[in-house]
Simulated assay, not measured.
Amino acid sequence: MHPHSDADRNPQLDEDDAYPEPPSKSSRKREMHALQDIGRQLVELSPERLRKVPMPEELYDAVRDAQRFTKHEARRRQLQYIGKLMRAIDPAPIQAQLDAFNGVSAAEVAKQHRLERLRSDFIEDEKVIAAIAEAFPGADLQYLRTLRRNALKEREQNKPPKAFREIFRVLRDLEEGAAGEADETADDDHDPEQA
């Protein structure tokens, strides 16, 4: 018996080894689920945050459609479609933006704590609405008052804190809207055409 392998005798086998095998079915499935998870995170974003995520228009439209679906099966199918669309793009910039939204940065964590304090203060004392109105002139104060009443009822009745969470979402959206306007104003101040 000859001590050399078949590869030593047949150079053709060495060439075949140079081509990687296609990904296995299970690895493709894991990748698909990871992309669907990113899609699910996109669907859960507020419209203001979603506009800040770098993505093709077709993907943006698909995410907005999924946000409008209320039936579980329709949303599930739309999430699969979003995952399919994401296979054709580089998900890294999207993931980086989601990481920023999810409080990966210290500034995001500080902002989240500040908004949570504001929400708690508002729940405990309705007069805090004046501070909210001053900080966010576009705030729907009537809606916030209604949410506060509902949050207090939920707490009394030991119900899930839907209104409590909604207050946070509204405050976060107001702050992001104000930050966006500040950015636009700063851009206008530095516009070379206006100089």
Rank of each mutant, 00 (worst) to 15 (best):
2 H>V: 04
3 P>E: 15
5 S>T: 06
5 S>V: 01
6 D>P: 06
11 P>H: 01
15 E>G: 08
18 A>S: 10
18 A>H: 00
19 Y>N: 08
20 P>D: 11
22 P>N: 10
24 S>Y: 01
32 M>Q: 12
35 L>C: 06
41 Q>K: 12
41 Q>R: 09
42 L>W: 09
42 L>E: 11
44 E>T: 09
45 L>P: 14
47 P>L: 10
47 P>I: 01
49 R>S: 14
52 K>D: 10
53 V>I: 08
54 P>V: 05
54 P>H: 02
54 P>R: 02
55 M>W: 04
55 M>I: 03
56 P>A: 14
58 E>M: 08
60 Y>S: 13
61 D>L: 11
63 V>I: 08
67 Q>D: 12
68 R>N: 14
69 F>C: 12
71 K>S: 03
74 A>F: 01
75 R>Y: 03
76 R>M: 12
79 L>Y: 07
79 L>R: 13
79 L>P: 12
80 Q>N: 11
81 Y>C: 01
82 I>N: 11
89 I>H: 15
89 I>F: 14
91 P>Q: 12
92 A>P: 03
96 A>S: 08
97 Q>V: 04
98 L>I: 04
98 L>V: 02
103 G>R: 05
105 S>H: 02
108 E>P: 02
109 V>C: 04
109 V>R: 15
110 A>Y: 03
112 Q>A: 11
112 Q>V: 00
113 H>R: 10
117 R>Y: 02
118 L>Q: 02
120 S>W: 00
121 D>W: 00
128 V>K: 14
129 I>W: 11
135 A>F: 05
136 F>I: 10
138 G>V: 02
139 A>K: 07
144 L>K: 12
146 T>C: 06
147 L>A: 04
151 A>P: 00
151 A>T: 00
155 R>P: 00
159 K>T: 02
160 P>M: 05
161 P>E: 04
162 K>N: 14
166 E>L: 15
166 E>S: 15
168 F>P: 06
168 F>W: 00
169 R>E: 10
173 D>P: 00
173 D>R: 02
174 L>G: 13
178 A>K: 13
181 E>C: 02
184 E>C: 03
186 A>C: 07
186 A>D: 15
187 D>F: 02
189 D>K: 11
190 H>E: 03
191 D>C: 10
192 P>E: 05
192 P>K: 06
193 E>G: 12
193 E>W: 04
193 E>T: 07
193 E>V: 05
